[in-house]
Amino acid sequence: MKKITFTLNGESRTVAVAPHEVLLDVLRDKLGVKSPKVGCERGDCGACTILLDGKPVRSCLILAVEVEGQEITTLEGVGRDGPTPLQESFIRHNAFQCGFCAPGIVLAATALLEKNPKPTAHEVQEAISGNLCRCTGYEAIIESAVEAGRQGTARARKPAARKSANR
């Protein structure tokens, strides 16, 4: 066992792991963070997406020991103070159905909007490439992210944005 320390959603966490333990499993089973989903476990579906030092990556293809000292954000961290304008936009567009893909897609789109605040539909498509959704056909997902970009930054949690959820 190795003790590793990293930042998880803004808090420093220390956990003992064996080198062969996969980050996705450690997040879910040892740290109780359940938004990253177990899908294909081979990098193809994006359900396990997390942000590692701000970049979307596949947590099923990372060993937990590798993230010592790094910063991880999951959906729990993004939506901690209530839904972000991006998430509000997803709600308005009814962008998800079963929601299994949602954590990964929200994170991938959040990272995109931080880098590129007003993405085109094509740029959104590229950013969520490999985040498979078996329910929706993607149109509403892409439109939500484009619209969130048009309306302001992804993470800013303005009261105005909160209001739109209660519409």
Partner: peptide, 9 residues
């Protein structure tokens, strides 16, 4: 190559 999330790594 693969997808954005894989290419980042």
């Amino acid at each position: 190559v693969a997808s954005n999330g894989v290419r980042n790594r």
